[in-house]
Simulated assay, not measured.
Amino acid sequence: MTTLPPPAGRRRGPSPFEPLVAISPRARVTLGVSFFVLFFALWGGVTWGGLVKPLFLADPARTFAAGWRLLTEFGFAGDIAITIGRVVGGFVVAAALAVPLGIAMGAFKPVEAFFEPFVSFARYLPASAFIPLLILWLGVDEAQKLAVIFIGAFFQIVLMIAVLIGETRRDLVEAAYTLGAGSRGIVTRVMLPYAAPQIAETLRLVLGWAWTYVIVAELIGADAGIGHMIMDSQRFLDTGQMIFGIFLIGAIGLVTDLGFRAVNRFFFPWQLGR
């Protein structure tokens, strides 16, 4: 008997390689871990196989041995805590000021017209370019590192949140007006709940950028922190310590990102439950 093809418009079942088709949490974890296994296998192959000299790329065993030495003999845990404190401090200050301004810009067009040209201009300025000026203005203490993170995060958050608030569905706003809501009620009871999941995701993304800014700030004019350790290791050509520092930044960022995702899923399960 000849098998006829399925009628048009009917599918035999979703394939995991079709756009936006969800996969199970177990499959997601398995695939994510598989990439790291493959990465470390390739890394070990090119280093232990002699394809790259240890001077240019330390092997995995040497890298983690260098990291263990840093933690047990040189008090590297203190540097890690300092860097995390800088990231959190600069990011929290930036978010605390940027979120209200972004909401005001997205909700009220006169506020947007006043601030948007400058914010759009400033967000293209690289935070690292301000480091020499910030050292002159603030010295090499903590204020300078926090200022670098603030400059790098503040303008991005403002503009992204303004866009999210401005995309609130007009029919929801009109319905709220019909029910007697005023301008304040529109913002607090329509716009904010509508955009809250996307605002949380925006903050999660910008927190990742804050790690880039703090390491750049610590590479210049710092006497502690992960970036400072990486620069010291470069002077001694210790690629093991340098790679460990870079990996540690990624590991802390990954843990932070997963924590942020979990919090977002808890508060906004209808949009961020994947």
Rank of each mutant, 00 (worst) to 15 (best):
G9A: 01
M105A: 05
Q234H: 12
P19L: 05
L164C: 02
P7M: 08
M1F: 13
I82T: 14
I246G: 14
A66R: 14
A94W: 03
T47W: 06
I199F: 01
I186W: 00
V263Q: 03
D223K: 11
G253N: 06
G50F: 03
I135T: 11
L159N: 10
R265T: 14
I215V: 15
G102S: 06
E18R: 14
M229R: 10
P5G: 04
L51W: 05
A195I: 01
A196L: 12
P25R: 03
A153H: 07
R261Q: 14
A61N: 02
F40N: 10
L71N: 03
M242P: 02
F91N: 09
L203M: 12
A81W: 06
W270E: 07
E174P: 00
L192M: 09
R184P: 00
E73M: 09
A127M: 08
L51K: 08
A66P: 12
T239I: 11
G227T: 02
M160V: 08
A22P: 15
T47K: 11
Y124I: 05
I149K: 08
F115R: 11
L164G: 01
L159G: 12
S24Y: 09
F64V: 15
P132Y: 10
G245Y: 07
M160C: 09
T47A: 14
F56K: 05
G245K: 04
Q144A: 11
L164Y: 10
P6H: 09
G182T: 07
I230E: 04
R26K: 12
R274V: 12
R123D: 05
V87G: 00
L38R: 07
F114Q: 01
S128P: 02
M1K: 10
V187T: 03
N264C: 07
V263D: 01
A95P: 03
A122Y: 12
L133G: 06
M229A: 07
M229C: 03
A77F: 09
L71D: 02
A98D: 02
D79A: 13
W211A: 13
V190M: 02
L42N: 04
A107I: 06
L138C: 02
Q156M: 14
R86S: 08
A58Q: 13
F266V: 10
A251E: 00
F130E: 00
Q144Y: 03
M231R: 12
V163N: 11
P7G: 06
I165T: 10
T178E: 04
L237S: 15
A251K: 05
R86G: 04
G182S: 07
G273Y: 14
E112F: 11
L205I: 15
L219W: 02
A200R: 00
L207H: 02
S34A: 15
Y213F: 14
T83Y: 02
R184K: 01
I135E: 11
V158R: 03
G78C: 06
A143V: 03
R184M: 05
A104L: 12
L203E: 05
K145I: 05
L51N: 06
F76H: 04
F266D: 00
E142G: 08
P193C: 07
A65V: 15
I103V: 15
L101N: 04
I165V: 13
A22T: 13
G67Q: 03
T30S: 06
L97E: 01
E218H: 09
A181I: 02
G85Q: 07
I135N: 13
L237H: 14
